[in-house]
Design a protein around this nucleic acid. Structure first.
Lengths: 112, 112
DNA sequence: TAGTGGTACTCAGTACTACAAAGTAGCAGG
DNA sequence: CCTGCTACTTTGTAGTACTGAGTACCACTA
């Protein structure tokens, strides 16, 4: 119930999934690495559980192709890559983001 | 379950409340008018029910001052104005927005 | 004067999302 | 062997926007 700057979870709803799509779109990668990447990017509080639920959702929606590969650093990794539907969804996400963020910025400028 | 451009509801979660705060901050106003304002601003699918739940939440959090005034155009209106806590919350909202949107834009630019 | 349409508010229930928390499992180094 | 790091899974919870139904008040009009 804090109102501090670092509590961004509500604002990330609906955008985190798109961010994960974008990261996967850049290169085939896996859950743990995606979490670290998001943390690096400034989304410091995003934890693994969140990312894994998103990945399962993407898989269910048929937006990604999954490949299991052994790892030298622990249990096997599940690598994710975008398929055509995923790339389409990603483009849609950026279109929505463009739209929403421009409206909000306009509102901020006292948009009449 | 559509994936069309006009389904923005998930992306608005966490930001709509801030938008309502901003509108109230601009001038004392009431629920119905706020809904129309949001629709004008491009948030076409936002409906009254949503705005009223936000307003009740703001009231519960003690961020607004409420004044009931009779209307010539129907039942009495509940006018909302920001108090000090509300102005603080609004500033916090814009700070968060600045932060989150800049990170997402960076990610979009292929941010390394 | 009954009916319609626009204004204005309320409330119960639902869907979706991010997070918390706990657990399983493998490998490396001391 | 045991601690720490990597890596994945699952269950449950809280918060938010939306749906849909309802109440109520007024103006206009047929």
């Amino acid at each position: 119930m804090r109102a501090t700057m670092d509590d961004l979870t509500e604002m990330l709803k609906g955008t985190l999934e798109g961010c994960v799509l974008e990261i996967i779109g850049g290169e085939e990668t896996y859950g743990y690495a995606i979490t670290r990447r998001l943390n690096e990017l400034g989304f410091a509080d995003v934890v693994e559980g969140t990312v894994y639920t998103i990945l399962l959702r993407l898989e269910k929606k048929g937006l990604v192709q999954v490949t299991k590969r052994p790892s030298a650093q622990g249990p096997p990794r599940k690598f994710y890559a975008l398929n055509d539907a995923g790339r389409e969804e990603l483009a849609m996400f950026w279109a929505k983001w463009e739209y929403v963020s421009s409206r909000i910025d306009k509102l901020k400028e006292g948009g009449r």
